[in-house]
Design a protein around this nucleic acid. Sequence first.
DNA 1: AGCAACAAATATC
DNA 2: GATATTTGTTGCT
Length: 293
Amino acid sequence: MTVAARFEADITPTGTDYDTVRRVIERLSRDYREQPTLETIAADLGRSPSEVQKTFTRWAGLSPKAFLQAVTLDNAKHLLGTEGLPLLDASLELGYSGPGRLHDLFVTHEAMSPGVWKARGEGLTIAYGYHPSPFGTALMMATDRGLAGIAFCDGDEEESAFEDMARRWPKAAYVRDDAKTAPYASRVFDPGRWRADEPLRVVMIGSDFQIRVWEALLDIPMGRAKTYSGIAGEIGSPKAARAVGAAVGRNPLSFVVPCHRAIGASGALTGYHWGLTRKRAMLGWETGRLGAG
DNA sequence: AGCAACAAATATC
DNA sequence: GATATTTGTTGCT
Protein backbone atom coordinates (compact mmCIF):
# COMPACT_ATOMS: atom_id res chain seq x y z
CA MET A 1 0.00 0.00 0.00
CA THR A 2 1.38 3.37 -0.92
CA VAL A 3 1.79 6.08 1.63
CA ALA A 4 -0.77 8.22 -0.14
CA ALA A 5 -3.31 5.43 -0.16
CA ARG A 6 -2.75 4.87 3.48
CA PHE A 7 -3.54 8.51 4.15
CA GLU A 8 -6.82 8.09 2.34
CA ALA A 9 -7.73 5.20 4.59
CA ASP A 10 -6.70 7.33 7.51
CA ILE A 11 -9.02 10.19 6.84
CA THR A 12 -11.78 9.38 9.30
CA PRO A 13 -11.22 11.31 12.52
CA THR A 14 -11.71 8.46 14.97
CA GLY A 15 -10.53 4.91 14.69
CA THR A 16 -7.65 5.94 12.47
CA ASP A 17 -4.41 4.09 12.31
CA TYR A 18 -2.81 6.83 14.29
CA ASP A 19 -5.50 6.58 16.90
CA THR A 20 -4.78 2.90 17.46
CA VAL A 21 -1.05 3.45 17.28
CA ARG A 22 -1.23 6.33 19.69
CA ARG A 23 -2.99 4.21 22.26
CA VAL A 24 -0.48 1.44 21.87
CA ILE A 25 2.38 3.89 22.29
CA GLU A 26 0.76 5.43 25.34
CA ARG A 27 0.45 2.02 26.89
CA LEU A 28 3.99 0.99 26.04
CA SER A 29 5.44 4.23 27.35
CA ARG A 30 3.59 4.02 30.60
CA ASP A 31 4.16 0.37 31.33
CA TYR A 32 7.42 -0.38 29.58
CA ARG A 33 8.89 -1.60 32.87
CA GLU A 34 6.45 -4.50 32.77
CA GLN A 35 7.14 -5.15 29.08
CA PRO A 36 3.47 -5.85 28.39
CA THR A 37 2.77 -8.51 25.83
CA LEU A 38 1.01 -7.82 22.57
CA GLU A 39 -1.85 -9.95 23.84
CA THR A 40 -2.47 -7.81 26.91
CA ILE A 41 -2.36 -4.60 24.94
CA ALA A 42 -4.72 -5.87 22.29
CA ALA A 43 -7.13 -7.14 24.93
CA ASP A 44 -7.23 -3.74 26.59
CA LEU A 45 -7.98 -2.08 23.27
CA GLY A 46 -10.69 -4.63 22.53
CA ARG A 47 -8.91 -5.89 19.43
CA SER A 48 -7.20 -9.04 18.40
CA PRO A 49 -3.44 -9.25 18.79
CA SER A 50 -2.85 -9.73 15.09
CA GLU A 51 -5.00 -6.73 14.26
CA VAL A 52 -2.94 -4.52 16.54
CA GLN A 53 0.30 -6.03 15.34
CA LYS A 54 -0.58 -5.45 11.68
CA THR A 55 -1.84 -1.91 12.08
CA PHE A 56 1.15 -0.92 14.11
CA THR A 57 3.72 -2.49 11.85
CA ARG A 58 2.13 -1.05 8.73
CA TRP A 59 2.26 2.40 10.26
CA ALA A 60 5.65 2.39 11.92
CA GLY A 61 7.58 -0.04 9.77
CA LEU A 62 8.61 -1.92 12.85
CA SER A 63 6.85 -4.19 15.28
CA PRO A 64 5.45 -2.98 18.60
CA LYS A 65 8.22 -4.87 20.31
CA ALA A 66 10.98 -3.20 18.31
CA PHE A 67 9.28 0.11 18.82
CA LEU A 68 9.24 -0.49 22.54
CA GLN A 69 12.98 -0.90 22.48
CA ALA A 70 13.41 2.25 20.44
CA VAL A 71 11.38 4.55 22.66
CA THR A 72 12.16 3.15 26.07
CA LEU A 73 15.75 4.02 25.46
CA ASP A 74 14.94 7.45 26.75
CA ASN A 75 15.68 5.75 30.04
CA ALA A 76 18.94 4.29 28.82
CA LYS A 77 21.30 6.96 30.00
CA HIS A 78 24.42 5.17 28.93
CA LEU A 79 23.67 5.96 25.28
CA LEU A 80 24.17 9.63 25.95
CA GLY A 81 27.92 9.24 26.20
CA THR A 82 28.49 10.17 22.58
CA GLU A 83 27.29 13.22 20.72
CA GLY A 84 24.08 12.69 18.89
CA LEU A 85 22.64 9.71 20.69
CA PRO A 86 21.76 7.04 18.16
CA LEU A 87 18.20 5.89 18.57
CA LEU A 88 18.82 2.44 17.27
CA ASP A 89 22.34 1.53 16.26
CA ALA A 90 21.65 -1.06 13.60
CA SER A 91 19.06 1.07 11.86
CA LEU A 92 21.35 4.04 11.92
CA GLU A 93 24.01 2.13 10.04
CA LEU A 94 21.48 1.14 7.41
CA GLY A 95 20.34 4.73 7.11
CA TYR A 96 23.79 6.00 6.35
CA SER A 97 25.24 3.28 4.20
CA GLY A 98 22.61 2.95 1.50
CA PRO A 99 23.02 4.79 -1.81
CA GLY A 100 19.91 6.85 -1.28
CA ARG A 101 20.90 7.86 2.19
CA LEU A 102 17.81 8.77 4.08
CA HIS A 103 18.54 12.23 5.15
CA ASP A 104 15.88 14.63 6.12
CA LEU A 105 13.60 16.41 3.89
CA PHE A 106 16.05 18.57 2.02
CA VAL A 107 15.00 21.92 3.24
CA THR A 108 15.96 25.31 1.92
CA HIS A 109 14.98 27.80 4.48
CA GLU A 110 15.02 31.52 4.60
CA ALA A 111 14.47 33.64 7.64
CA MET A 112 11.86 36.31 7.43
CA SER A 113 13.25 39.72 8.17
CA PRO A 114 13.01 40.77 11.80
CA GLY A 115 10.68 43.46 10.57
CA VAL A 116 8.02 40.95 9.61
CA TRP A 117 8.46 39.21 12.95
CA LYS A 118 8.08 42.43 14.88
CA ALA A 119 5.08 43.43 12.81
CA ARG A 120 3.54 40.13 13.94
CA GLY A 121 2.93 39.02 10.40
CA GLU A 122 1.32 42.22 9.23
CA GLY A 123 0.95 42.33 5.47
CA LEU A 124 1.47 38.58 5.20
CA THR A 125 -1.11 36.38 3.52
CA ILE A 126 -1.11 32.82 4.80
CA ALA A 127 -2.97 29.99 3.12
CA TYR A 128 -3.90 27.05 5.32
CA GLY A 129 -5.50 23.65 5.04
CA TYR A 130 -6.05 20.39 6.92
CA HIS A 131 -4.55 17.12 5.74
CA PRO A 132 -4.30 13.59 7.09
CA SER A 133 -0.85 12.56 8.27
CA PRO A 134 0.71 9.63 10.09
CA PHE A 135 0.51 11.67 13.30
CA GLY A 136 -3.10 12.74 13.14
CA THR A 137 -4.59 15.61 11.21
CA ALA A 138 -1.96 18.12 10.12
CA LEU A 139 -2.71 21.79 9.77
CA MET A 140 -0.40 23.26 7.13
CA MET A 141 0.22 26.95 6.61
CA ALA A 142 2.04 28.46 3.66
CA THR A 143 2.98 31.85 2.32
CA ASP A 144 3.85 32.30 -1.33
CA ARG A 145 7.51 32.01 -0.34
CA GLY A 146 7.11 28.55 1.13
CA LEU A 147 5.83 26.51 4.03
CA ALA A 148 5.51 28.56 7.20
CA GLY A 149 3.77 26.38 9.76
CA ILE A 150 2.61 22.88 10.66
CA ALA A 151 0.41 21.94 13.59
CA PHE A 152 -1.18 18.67 14.64
CA CYS A 153 -4.55 17.85 16.06
CA ASP A 154 -6.83 14.93 16.75
CA GLY A 155 -10.51 14.76 16.00
CA ASP A 156 -12.26 17.98 16.87
CA GLU A 157 -9.23 20.06 17.81
CA GLU A 158 -8.90 21.72 14.42
CA GLU A 159 -10.09 25.08 15.65
CA SER A 160 -7.76 25.23 18.62
CA ALA A 161 -4.80 24.14 16.51
CA PHE A 162 -5.54 26.94 14.09
CA GLU A 163 -5.80 29.47 16.89
CA ASP A 164 -2.58 28.22 18.37
CA MET A 165 -0.83 28.92 15.09
CA ALA A 166 -2.63 32.14 14.26
CA ARG A 167 -1.58 33.62 17.58
CA ARG A 168 2.02 33.49 16.43
CA TRP A 169 1.41 35.95 13.61
CA PRO A 170 -1.79 37.64 14.75
CA LYS A 171 -1.81 40.32 12.09
CA ALA A 172 -1.45 38.07 9.08
CA ALA A 173 -4.40 37.43 6.78
CA TYR A 174 -5.50 33.79 6.80
CA VAL A 175 -7.16 32.15 3.81
CA ARG A 176 -8.43 28.59 3.79
CA ASP A 177 -6.97 26.93 0.70
CA ASP A 178 -6.52 23.18 0.98
CA ALA A 179 -5.49 22.91 -2.65
CA LYS A 180 -2.53 25.15 -2.03
CA THR A 181 -1.28 23.32 1.05
CA ALA A 182 -2.02 19.76 -0.11
CA PRO A 183 1.22 19.42 -2.11
CA TYR A 184 3.23 20.34 0.96
CA ALA A 185 1.42 17.71 3.02
CA SER A 186 2.06 14.92 0.55
CA ARG A 187 5.71 15.92 0.23
CA VAL A 188 6.45 16.29 3.91
CA PHE A 189 4.99 13.01 5.11
CA ASP A 190 6.23 10.79 2.31
CA PRO A 191 9.92 10.01 2.82
CA GLY A 192 10.02 8.66 -0.71
CA ARG A 193 9.70 12.23 -1.91
CA TRP A 194 12.47 13.72 0.18
CA ARG A 195 14.95 14.63 -2.51
CA ALA A 196 17.84 17.03 -2.86
CA ASP A 197 16.86 18.01 -6.39
CA GLU A 198 13.47 19.14 -5.23
CA PRO A 199 14.08 20.95 -1.96
CA LEU A 200 11.24 21.97 0.25
CA ARG A 201 10.97 25.71 0.65
CA VAL A 202 10.19 26.87 4.13
CA VAL A 203 10.13 30.28 5.73
CA MET A 204 11.02 30.75 9.35
CA ILE A 205 9.36 33.59 11.13
CA GLY A 206 10.89 34.16 14.53
CA SER A 207 13.47 36.00 16.60
CA ASP A 208 17.19 35.72 15.87
CA PHE A 209 17.74 33.35 18.73
CA GLN A 210 14.81 31.16 17.76
CA ILE A 211 15.96 30.88 14.17
CA ARG A 212 19.45 29.85 15.26
CA VAL A 213 17.91 27.13 17.40
CA TRP A 214 15.68 25.92 14.57
CA GLU A 215 18.63 25.80 12.19
CA ALA A 216 20.49 23.66 14.71
CA LEU A 217 17.51 21.30 14.82
CA LEU A 218 17.59 20.91 11.05
CA ASP A 219 21.14 19.60 11.36
CA ILE A 220 20.10 16.61 13.43
CA PRO A 221 19.87 13.57 11.18
CA MET A 222 16.75 11.47 11.10
CA GLY A 223 16.50 8.89 13.84
CA ARG A 224 18.95 10.71 16.07
CA ALA A 225 18.49 13.14 18.89
CA LYS A 226 20.34 15.91 20.64
CA THR A 227 20.08 17.36 24.10
CA TYR A 228 18.86 20.87 24.78
CA SER A 229 22.18 21.75 26.36
CA GLY A 230 24.05 20.30 23.37
CA ILE A 231 22.12 22.59 21.06
CA ALA A 232 22.78 25.51 23.38
CA GLY A 233 26.51 24.86 23.14
CA GLU A 234 26.34 24.58 19.38
CA ILE A 235 24.75 27.96 18.84
CA GLY A 236 27.31 29.61 21.10
CA SER A 237 25.31 30.03 24.28
CA PRO A 238 26.28 27.00 26.33
CA LYS A 239 24.32 28.08 29.35
CA ALA A 240 21.10 28.82 27.54
CA ALA A 241 19.69 25.28 27.61
CA ARG A 242 16.48 26.44 29.11
CA ALA A 243 16.05 29.20 26.59
CA VAL A 244 16.69 26.63 23.88
CA GLY A 245 13.86 24.57 25.30
CA ALA A 246 11.54 27.54 25.08
CA ALA A 247 12.61 28.28 21.52
CA VAL A 248 12.24 24.66 20.46
CA GLY A 249 8.76 24.71 21.89
CA ARG A 250 7.85 27.72 19.78
CA ASN A 251 8.95 26.08 16.56
CA PRO A 252 6.03 26.64 14.19
CA LEU A 253 7.14 23.96 11.72
CA SER A 254 6.82 20.85 13.80
CA PHE A 255 8.12 17.71 12.15
CA VAL A 256 9.84 19.58 9.28
CA VAL A 257 12.03 21.35 11.79
CA PRO A 258 12.56 18.27 13.93
CA CYS A 259 11.78 19.62 17.35
CA HIS A 260 10.90 16.09 18.36
CA ARG A 261 14.62 15.24 18.17
CA ALA A 262 15.50 17.46 21.09
CA ILE A 263 15.56 15.58 24.38
CA GLY A 264 16.73 16.12 27.92
CA ALA A 265 20.30 15.48 29.01
CA SER A 266 19.24 12.38 30.94
CA GLY A 267 17.64 10.90 27.86
CA ALA A 268 14.15 11.72 29.09
CA LEU A 269 11.83 13.03 26.41
CA THR A 270 10.70 16.04 28.49
CA GLY A 271 7.97 17.90 26.64
CA TYR A 272 6.30 18.41 23.29
CA HIS A 273 3.90 21.11 22.25
CA TRP A 274 1.57 18.74 20.42
CA GLY A 275 1.75 16.00 23.04
CA LEU A 276 4.49 13.72 24.29
CA THR A 277 2.84 10.73 22.70
CA ARG A 278 3.18 12.36 19.32
CA LYS A 279 6.87 12.97 20.03
CA ARG A 280 7.36 9.31 20.79
CA ALA A 281 5.36 8.44 17.71
CA MET A 282 7.58 10.57 15.49
CA LEU A 283 10.80 9.17 16.90
CA GLY A 284 9.53 5.63 16.58
CA TRP A 285 8.23 6.26 13.08
CA GLU A 286 11.59 7.64 12.00
CA THR A 287 13.36 4.67 13.49
CA GLY A 288 11.06 2.49 11.43
CA ARG A 289 11.75 4.44 8.21
CA LEU A 290 15.49 4.08 8.75
CA GLY A 291 15.22 0.36 9.12
CA ALA A 292 13.13 0.11 5.97
CA GLY A 293 15.40 2.35 3.92
C1' DA B 1 6.93 36.71 35.26
C1' DG B 2 7.49 32.29 32.97
C1' DC B 3 9.48 28.34 30.54
C1' DA B 4 9.84 21.42 26.48
C1' DA B 5 16.67 22.55 31.36
C1' DC B 6 20.61 21.25 34.22
C1' DA B 7 23.70 19.87 37.86
C1' DA B 8 24.32 19.08 42.46
C1' DA B 9 22.42 17.87 46.80
C1' DT B 10 19.30 15.22 49.48
C1' DA B 11 15.93 11.68 50.45
C1' DT B 12 14.30 6.97 49.54
C1' DC B 13 14.32 2.27 48.43
C1' DG C 1 24.52 1.29 45.93
C1' DA C 2 21.41 2.80 42.55
C1' DT C 3 17.28 5.76 41.62
C1' DA C 4 13.60 9.64 43.04
C1' DT C 5 12.73 14.05 44.42
C1' DT C 6 14.13 18.82 45.57
C1' DT C 7 16.71 23.04 45.11
C1' DG C 8 19.44 26.76 43.13
C1' DT C 9 20.83 28.86 38.86
C1' DT C 10 20.28 29.85 34.30
C1' DG C 11 19.20 32.85 29.43
C1' DC C 12 15.79 34.54 26.58
C1' DT C 13 10.85 36.21 25.59
